[in-house]
Simulated assay, not measured.
Amino acid sequence: MSERLVVVHPDAAVLVEATAARLLTRLLDLQSQRRPVHVVLTGGTVGIATLAAVAHDLVRTAVDWSGVHLWWGDERFLPSGDGDRNETQARDALLRSLGSALPDVNVHPVPALGGDVRTPERAAELYAAELARFAAPGATSPAFDVLMLGMGPDGHVASLFPGHEALAVEGVAATGVHGSPKLPAERVSLTFDAIRGAREVWVVAAGPEKAQAVASALSGAPVDQTPAAGASGSERTLWLLDAAAAGTEPDA
């Protein structure tokens, strides 16, 4: 049975450093058991800050990055190199600092707007095909070892928003998203099929504006209302929070 743990840190700065340390330790533990290791990165303020913290942690040199494959839970459908793309921010925060230790072929960004990729659906189709290359027979995506997700104040994860039709997409690992309430309106997202196929899902959230959505998700609210409630790993689900997001600040 999958377990769920809620870990609360005193503030966002500690949350970032602790999550970075947790990720590095998990990678080292996993590499003692199997190769390759598949990790899904997230964007957002805390997600990118966590990657920057990994870059500055000397423990990163103990990881065999040639045995780590990196993916993204969602992406803004923008041209390659655009500063608002999660991939661009991740490269600036961490990937570039790893240099040749992380082979280019181990990095699997969501296809960007450009060339023959003119719609989020086309990008999702290509991303799904790449995911399928590393999936077990009968699966549409790898059983990700760690899948990190941020969460919005509305309870969305990846680019799966409350009441949005993308929540109900099944049978594929990735989907195009139109009409996102958060700009840009066009995006590509992993589906719940892919998210729930991960061995571990980590939902990382900070700030008092997240507290209501955290409480809703942890209480088992309908996924259509609070999508984060549907984010769970097959082996373990971690909620990594600061005190404000957990609603445990003394003045909250």
Rank of each mutant, 00 (worst) to 15 (best):
T237L: 03
A93R: 01
A205S: 12
H56M: 08
A132S: 15
D251P: 10
A123F: 03
E121V: 13
H164G: 08
A221T: 14
L149P: 02
L238F: 07
A52T: 14
A215H: 04
V105N: 10
H178K: 11
R60F: 01
L167Y: 02
P153A: 12
L27Q: 02
V107N: 08
A211P: 02
D154V: 02
R4I: 10
G99P: 01
V37R: 08
G176V: 01
S159Q: 10
V172A: 04
L95E: 05
S189N: 12
A18I: 02
A205I: 04
W65Q: 06
W239S: 00
L190Y: 08
D145T: 06
A252K: 03
H108A: 05
E17L: 11
A143K: 14
P208K: 11
M151R: 00
H156C: 06
W65V: 07
T61L: 09
A13R: 15
Q89H: 11
A244S: 07
D92T: 10
G115V: 11
Y127W: 05
A185I: 06
D29A: 11
Q89R: 15
V40D: 11
R133C: 08
A158H: 00
S180D: 07
G99D: 06
E130D: 14
A128S: 07
G155E: 01
A55H: 02
V201N: 01
A123M: 09
A128L: 01
